[in-house]
C-alpha cells in the first residue's frame, strides 16, 4: 500500500529530476568561450578590490539568535493550538500564560535595544544657528 508520504516521495523525486534536467539541458546548446576578463567578479567595471567576503554587521547574528528562540516557541505553540478545543477554559488560561511569558521575552529584547538598527539620522541645518555663525 502506498501511503500519502509515498506520494510526496514520488513528487519530490520527480521535482528533483525535473530541476536537474532543466538546468543541465542548456549544457549541450550553450556556447563556451572563456576569457580571463569574463571570469572576473563584477564590481562596476573595476578590478575587484580585496576579499569578497567582507565584514558585516554583528546585528545579523543577533537577529538569527532571536529567531532561533522564537521559532522554537512557534513549534511549542502548534501542539497547544491543535489540542485547544478539547481543554476548554483550562487550555485558554495555559495558552495565555505561555503567550504572556513569550511577550515578556519580547519586551526584554526590545528594551535591551536588540531590535534597533542603525538608522540614518540626518541633521538638517537650523536657521538660527546659521545666522549665529555668520554674525
Amino acid at each position: 500500500m502506498l501511503t500519502e508520504f509515498g506520494k510526496i516521495f514520488i513528487f519530490i523525486l520527480l521535482a528533483a529530476i525535473f530541476v536537474i534536467i532543466t538546468l543541465f539541458i542548456s549544457k549541450f546548446v550553450r556556447p563556451n568561450r572563456p576569457t580571463k576578463e569574463k571570469y572576473l567578479t563584477y564590481e562596476c567595471g573595476e578590478n575587484p578590490q580585496g576579499s569578497p567576503w567582507v565584514q558585516f554587521n554583528i546585528r545579523f547574528y543577533v537577529v538569527a539568535l532571536i529567531f532561533l528562540i522564537f521559532d522554537v516557541e512557534v513549534v511549542l505553540l502548534f501542539p497547544w493550538a491543535l489540542a485547544y478545543q478539547e481543554y476548554g477554559i483550562y487550555g485558554f488560561v495555559v495558552g495565555l500564560i505561555f503567550l504572556l511569558v513569550l511577550g515578556l521575552g519580547m519586551a526584554y529584547e526590545w528594551r535591551k535595544g536588540d531590535l534597533e538598527w542603525a538608522r540614518p539620522q540626518p541633521k538638517p541645518p537650523k536657521l538660527d544657528e546659521i545666522l549665529k555663525t555668520k554674525s
Partner: peptide
C-alpha cells in the same frame, strides 16, 4: 565571491527568518 552577492544573501536570510516567526 562578490560583495554585492554576499550583502544580498545576508540581508535576505535575516529578512526571511524574521518574517518566518
Amino acid at each position: 565571491g562578490s560583495k554585492y552577492s554576499l550583502l544580498g544573501g545576508i540581508r535576505s536570510s535575516a529578512q526571511m527568518i524574521s518574517y518566518e516567526v
